[in-house]
Design a protein around this nucleic acid. Structure first.
Lengths: 269, 269
DNA sequence: AACAACGGTTCAATATATGAACCACACCAG
DNA sequence: CTGGTGTGGTTCATATATTGAACCGTTGTT
């Protein structure tokens, strides 16, 4: 692992749940030496990726990430173009919807939208989605590059009793996803949370990520699932179109075969 | 310079004007070796900070920066809180307004807002603002920590014929800024662009950055300058309040003395 | 078919990262 | 006030990871 990689990795320990981290604390989390970690933080601070809270001396993400995000958004305006579809999806289903994007073999959370309809709702607070344990991840493996399956089986960490932890368990879920055009993760990452995901594609014609709905398991009914799948098709089509891509005809075909067909849309256009 | 620093620095070469960069091209820009640059890019790609356009093999900023920006914004919601004030400022003046934030001795562009009123307008496309040559920079030096003056004189690069390139030239501008509560940069960074900036403060009581208006020099009149200063005071007060800070009473005093006093506001609240 | 430009790779030379032990300071309990 | 424990930050010999000239294979151009 290169020195630069190690320094960059430090940034991944920041989250909305843990927005400020002290030097010693970060050493413990990362399992790294204090001197090394300190120098890496200095490099990150020089570049503006972290800054110190002047009062506590704890580190937090710096202003440089805001700049880069602006450039990224100007370059690849995925987030902006996904937002409206996500809002419609959350509104129509009454559940939390989110979009993930694939880069290499890593699936990142892009943005999420909570429906205000229910008091209890799924809260998406993961930045990297496990490929084997989440609906979005399984969706990526099912419709993405074969290297994703390799990456998924390389880490079959168990999160709940329902997490697929063997190659064959995962393969069965992937097969189902390919047959239906949706990936379903029933409490396999977090208990009480059920996810359904549909693939999204970009201008290259390859899988770009997934759009998913996370619903509270106790509220899940056949009718809700029907609604979710129907709305997911609409959302996946819209986001894919916004990102300059096209849903592969095979996937459109399996969607059309299922009884979840939404009201007629000019999907061929 | 550490390896991590060098890798991070590669990210700074991306901009909205140059959103995708090839390997060889980046080597030329950065003046670095190809093998080294390639490895650094791989480290950045692994961390999700860049990704490759699969068609052209050129590199562009990756999805990880979006995540980090979300966390940063959740941690320090400066951008969101600055936006509304900036929009009002751009609207009232009819010119381009922007906010910069200070981290250490570096001044970063946070966000900007262009007024739709004029066909020609200033386009802010710098990510790091030189302390000596821009209104925002001079404003930071005037009202920030003394170390900023050191940092400013350490790099007195000349951008135009009007750029202050000597210690005394800069000191005179700083002194004027302290007396008036505004920093003015008349075509000292870009010709035809005139900047006026006011300081903003955060909860620590220290200078946090600046809010500024960049106007086209040929359109600049005494009346416009009066309007800009008046609106800048309002904007600086609002952003400072949103960021949990307070305008120092000395600065409020010099603003009150000038003839640019805006219509009565409960500025003491 | 020759050429140039590109992304990517190799391997000896060496500049760079590393971490155990260290310091200074702040906080807290007795 | 004193000793203990926590923190952020620093040192320096050791050794490991970084470096870049030269290389390869491919692609698009003339």
């Amino acid at each position: 692992m290169s020195s630069a990689t190690k320094a960059l990795k430090l940034l991944s320990y920041f989250s909305t749940a843990r927005p400020e981290i002290g030097l010693t604390q970060l050493c413990r989390i990362a399992g790294r030496d204090k001197a090394t970690t300190y120098r890496h933080l200095q490099a990150l601070e020089t570049a503006g990726f972290v800054e110190q809270n002047p009062l506590t001396k704890h580190y937090r993400l710096g202003p440089a990430v805001m700049q880069l995000a602006q450039i990224r958004e100007a370059t690849v305006p995925r987030k902006a173009s996904a937002k409206s579809a996500l809002a419609a999806l959350a509104d129509a289903t009454g559940e939390t919807a989110h979009v993930t994007v694939l880069s290499g073999t890593t699936l990142y959370g892009l943005c999420d939208c909570e429906s205000p309809r229910h008091g209890t709702r799924a809260v998406i607070d993961i930045s990297i989605f496990p490929l084997h344990a989440t609906a979005s991840g399984q969706c990526s493996v099912a419709f993405g590059d074969p290297s994703l399956l390799e990456a998924a089986v390389a880490n079959l960490e168990g999160f709940t009793a329902s997490t697929p932890t063997t190659h064959s368990d995962l393969a069965a879920l992937i097969e189902t996803a390919r047959e239906t055009g949706f990936a379903c993760a029933n409490q396999s990452y977090e208990s009480e949370i059920q996810g359904i995901a549909a693939p999204i594609f970009d201008h290259t014609g390859h899988l770009a990520g997934a759009v998913a709905v996370a619903s509270v398991a106790s509220r899940h009914t056949a009718e809700l699932e029907h609604t979710i799948k129907s709305e997911l098709i609409t959302a996946a089509r819209e986001i894919t179109r916004n990102w300059g891509g096209k849903i592969p005809t095979q996937i459109e075909a399996v969607w059309a075969k299922s009884d979840t067909t939404p009201n007629a849309l000019d999907s061929t256009q």
